[in-house]
Design a protein around this nucleic acid. Sequence first.
DNA 1: CGCTCTATTGACTTCGTTCAACAAGCGTGG
DNA 2: CCACGCTTGTTGAACGAAGTCAATAGAGCG
Lengths: 235, 235
Amino acid sequence: MDNHDPEIVEIIRHVAVLHDAADEDLQTIAGMSIRRAVEDGGYFFLQGDKAEYLYILASGRAKLCMISADGQQVNLRTLIPNQLFGALGAIQPGAVYPACAQALQDSTALAIASADFRNLVTKRPHLSFGLMELMTGYIQEMQERYRELATERVEQRVARALLRLAAQSGQKIERGGITLPFSRQDLAEMTGTTLYTVSRYLSRWEKKGMITTGRELITLIEPHALVRVADDLAK
Amino acid sequence: MDNHDPEIVEIIRHVAVLHDAADEDLQTIAGMSIRRAVEDGGYFFLQGDKAEYLYILASGRAKLCMISADGQQVNLRTLIPNQLFGALGAIQPGAVYPACAQALQDSTALAIASADFRNLVTKRPHLSFGLMELMTGYIQEMQERYRELATERVEQRVARALLRLAAQSGQKIERGGITLPFSRQDLAEMTGTTLYTVSRYLSRWEKKGMITTGRELITLIEPHALVRVADDLAK
DNA sequence: CGCTCTATTGACTTCGTTCAACAAGCGTGG
DNA sequence: CCACGCTTGTTGAACGAAGTCAATAGAGCG
């Protein structure tokens, strides 16, 4: 508990869930955490593993995904540094992860034993408010995406996914657009379709000058045109 | 706070979220709650309303649903008595409901002011664990349904919806099957399809003897046959 | 009895998937 | 440095699942 690595404390301080935690608590959490590195394509945990740790992404990029019985991947969420994930076990002792967490680049995360964190929350109950905010936000996002999947056409969903990624992965809005490092396959997993269909729409949009594309790279040139597509106002 | 209506306390005692709340807390909550009746088809709240109350269904049946821009309904969850819903505002002051809650029969619920409940949770922090369990359970269900919607065909999803409703609405498994009070339209909203498609599959299953149907009524005769369909093992 | 709401079914259309062939980018090792 | 191979992306053609539209049939209620 006397591990007060200032860098770790700094990472933890920027986790949204802990925005109003006392400095003392941040130190405590830092003391409980272990650094874990996972290389590109590797997993922090797999669907079905016992949820013994919760994680905070420190560097790199990762995704939370589920794999269906027939092997198809569904992408639930893209993770960026300072986001907490895999917190389920901190709430329900003995739970298993309902999804897997895969690194999209070489990444590092802080791992905290679920049981330790649960004890801390018991002693410091105000921490649970941050957790509950995280969860309600996540619930709302999932509900919204569920509605989209149930009611919108693929074209709209892909446009929306690009806009959402642009907003959260928060790349600089340089002149020339917002660049996103995702493949056709990634987009397909996020929107519940196939890479072929994604490729067709991206090609069409590129011809119209709304975006430019490269290998595992999409640059939004006219985001407002995508908004029109997402809202089905396209002619 | 001295309203200790024993019937209300009894309802509150059976809310899963509060399973390990102290008797004293149950009494307090009972004292904060107001009974609200909503008739068939009416709303407890609408999507976008300020989330000033949370509810516990006392009698009847209701659904949580979202309405998309073009008017299509998406059914997120079917509510049965003793379930808590609309709790978002208890976590995030000033939030608006992301979905609406509509009665499917004449129903009553206990309404508790979000602010009052939030204060109570602050004073009695162990209550937050029940809330977090509720939320993690809900997140897992949403993730699972999202995966289904993204990867499975309509036939599988309808079969799964029937099995899920049978499991949770927990009708007695009498000889002769499990009877569910849902229309084709309800099923369609739950599975992200149209009433026509639902009707076609139900007809087909009825011809095979797997179910019987009536007006707003479906009886599962051979649930295991539906399991095979849901898992895509059907010939 | 007639009105309304729910359900059925056929015909047709559309969207999206699947399959296959091919092109282009990128890294590696000879 | 180039050739090779692997991965990613493109595009056409055919197919199939599900949506749409329309006509009709029952069920239940006042």
